[in-house]
Design a protein around this nucleic acid. Sequence first.
DNA 1: CCTACCGATCGGTAGG
DNA 2: CCTACCGATCGGTAGG
Lengths: 217, 217
Amino acid sequence: MTSVETRSRDRLLAAATTLFYERGFLATSVKEITQACGFTQGALYNHFSSKDELLYELVLDIHAELERHTIRERANAGDDPVDQFAALVAVHVTAHCQFRERSRVGNHEYRYLTSSRLVGVLDIRRRLRDQLAEVLAAGAAAGAFHLVSGSATGTARAVLDMCGLISEWFRDDGELTPLAMHRRYVELALRMAGGPPEPPHWPVLPEPPQFPGVDDA
Amino acid sequence: MTSVETRSRDRLLAAATTLFYERGFLATSVKEITQACGFTQGALYNHFSSKDELLYELVLDIHAELERHTIRERANAGDDPVDQFAALVAVHVTAHCQFRERSRVGNHEYRYLTSSRLVGVLDIRRRLRDQLAEVLAAGAAAGAFHLVSGSATGTARAVLDMCGLISEWFRDDGELTPLAMHRRYVELALRMAGGPPEPPHWPVLPEPPQFPGVDDA
DNA sequence: CCTACCGATCGGTAGG
DNA sequence: CCTACCGATCGGTAGG
């Protein structure tokens, strides 16, 4: 695959991300995606076998990147479950604040995937939740957390749900910066988990990860 | 309007609710809605001027009902802001557990409303958030809550977001009953607000409200 | 990557 | 509430 082919492909993915964010997958036509890149309709099929396939590749990439991010930041957080928990919450909050388009597309449009493609994405979503539940269970076992109903998965779900709608209302021109958001949500999540008011070490705000087409936006 | 006309209308709304829940507004055709009621396609236009108008009436009704419910349960909760807060959280949790279809349709499909219709629904959504923020501010002023960053609207948003995704994963055949859910989420919300571990009075699980077509499902 | 085209399906309407 | 139909648009393809 030559670099110009890769570039066209990434431009299509970037255009689709913005359009899916603004209107949703079903309300966006192939013509709109290709025209946003200066192409005509048929050009999309040089890079993707179908509109569904483009959605799959985009949504899978969004989830895979979030999982990589999650694994890396957890590893960097050291051995303390409270620090690991804070790091995971920070990753999710940052994703929703800094990469609103991708986060919202990932959370909204995956439901339009057809069965076999859907399974792969749901697997990642489950693993993301399990990561949080694992850390909560470890912290509870160590006496650092005191979970409502003793349920690590229940608390993990509530925390992820709390973070999952940030991209619906967060605005760059609002009064809250991504840094303020990540501190606020780490505090809220620690309260939900029955942990200390602050983590021993505050997670560093993760660097913006690179993904295809980000510099075309 | 005769009762048979009202009934057909309500059946169309009920069928649309289920289909929008399963596939979303855009993926549901007028033909599917009418066929679910044993009608042919054109019958929809005896009751609604367009597919968009049906969506608007459905989504508006879902939000209006939730607001009525909210106002009633808050009034029934007495003067204590902590009790009022618990009552409001219970209303939202109950809506998402007991009326998953309507809650999810309300939260997902309102984005497809066109501008003038959208405004009315967004107004209700803002008022629902303001109700929660009011109660949090009153409780904080009374020393019963200790809010993260001192922000009542920030905490209100986080609590509503935490509740807003319950309908995505809650299952009737799961291990959690609606009663267990409402206790768990009231506890989580009180922790987030920096309040007491339990409200002075636990809210009674609200009775299932009546809405058009519920007994046709 | 474009031009030209395909069948299918869409929301909506006329007339009864 | 049905039958029959409308123009528009959709995702996708053939051939270059």
